[in-house]
């Protein structure tokens, strides 16, 4: 089902939604949790993705592993393509394998994800370079998508049963978009995609044939380059924490005794020295450059081999957060150049 709606009507529908806890973001790009929907001031649909990654709501910073609490029904609003792709990576890890992480599954099941097209990409955005795009289609992982005919008129498209029901319940009286609306919407998408190529043309070519994977797979032994590129890394873990697809966690045992089992998990960081250290002190990734290299290999080689997609969605958060101003795109460019491959457009 598809509907066309203008911004103020959309806002008023959301202000009257009562059976969800709404998570949305304002112009400050920070997720807010709203219990009374009347408090929603505006929907910053023209923003890029939030500063914080949406994994916060499924793969929590800290979560108890030994007991369940009741789970609230959440409406997660305005998720962009990059973050949907990251959620797909997390899905593969937490619910796509033999063992299902029940908590992650329940959080996901109780969340309605409404995505929106990204029409104002920023300089740090590089989704299209790693196999993504700044707009959302069916199968990308959202229940419903908001796309733009122009800055005031929006198309709502349901992609899942959950999305269909939501659309029918709340937007039934609105009209269906015309062919012309779709044409206009598509040209908005093209402009946005072109912007991203423009921002990234000095770094790397578009990755049409998964060339980055093939090239990066063979860069492991370029130790001097990894050492040079990781020089400015202070191992703060900022990139890991802010990354929407980083999934590593640490289990912390805190039981009082065997009758009162208690343990939780907290996000962990592969850049930390202790991350891969084993009992007795041996460490397979002793040096900073090895840990730095491992993160790139994990994102562009290892998880690509597992899931046939990069575990990097090109959201650019790691570029913005890095106190050492390390830019993933520049690192990849250095590596690709060192392999003697052509990178510039």
């Amino acid at each position: 089902m598809e509907k066309i709606i203008n911004y103020s009507d959309l806002l008023s529908v959301f202000k009257n939604l009562n059976n969800f806890i709404i998570i949305y973001h304002n112009f400050d790009q920070i997720y807010k949790k709203i219990i009374n929907p009347q408090e929603i001031q505006n929907l910053a649909l023209l923003n890029i993705r939030c500063i914080h990654p949406p994994k916060l709501f499924f793969f929590k910073v800290k979560d108890i592993l030994t007991s369940f609490t009741s789970v609230e029904k959440i409406l997660l609003l305005d998720v962009k393509f990059c973050d949907l792709k990251a959620i797909r990576i997390l899905d593969n890890i937490f619910i796509g394998e033999e063992y299902v992480d029940e908590k992650y599954k329940i959080y996901k099941e109780n969340t309605l994800i409404i995505s929106s097209d990204c029409i104002n990409p920023q300089l740090s955005c590089f989704c299209s370079i790693v196999g993504g795009r700044p707009y959302v289609e069916k199968g990308d992982g959202s229940d419903l998508n908001i796309s733009f005919v122009d800055e005031n008129n929006l198309i709502l498209e349901a992609f899942t049963q959950k999305g269909e029901e939501f659309l029918k319940e709340n937007f039934n009286e609105f009209e269906e978009p015309t062919k012309n609306d779709y044409l206009k919407r598509n040209s908005v998408r093209v402009v946005s995609e072109r912007k991203i190529y423009e921002f990234n043309k000095e770094y790397i070519k578009e990755d049409k044939k998964n060339k980055h994977y093939l090239t990066l797979k063979n860069t492991y032994e370029l130790e001097s380059i990894w050492e040079k590129e990781s020089e400015k890394c202070v191992q703060c873990g900022g990139c890991n924490f802010i990354c929407p697809s980083c999934y590593c966690f640490l289990i912390r045992e805190a039981s009082k005794d065997y009758k009162d089992q208690h343990r939780d998990k907290v996000w962990d960081v592969c850049h930390f020295t202790g991350y891969s250290r084993v009992a007795g002190g041996a460490n397979p990734r002793k040096y900073k450059y090895q840990r730095f290299r491992n993160r790139y290999q994990c994102k562009f080689v290892y998880r690509y081999e597992n899931f046939n997609m990069y575990a990097c969605s090109g959201c650019g958060r790691c570029i913005e957060v890095c106190p050492g101003k390390i830019d993933m795109r520049k690192v990849i460019r250095s590596l690709v150049l060192a392999k003697g491959e052509e990178v510039l457009v």
Binding site: E97, E98, D101, C248, F249, L250, A279, P284, N294, V301
Partner: peptide, 24 residues
């Protein structure tokens, strides 16, 4: 093989070696 397998379920990431999770 031996690494610091922690969750044992192929999720927490600690025991990765190449594209394998040693635990899984």
């Amino acid at each position: 093989m031996e690494r610091n397998m922690s969750c044992g379920l192929g999720k927490c990431g600690h025991c990765q070696i190449g594209s394998y999770f040693i635990c899984k």
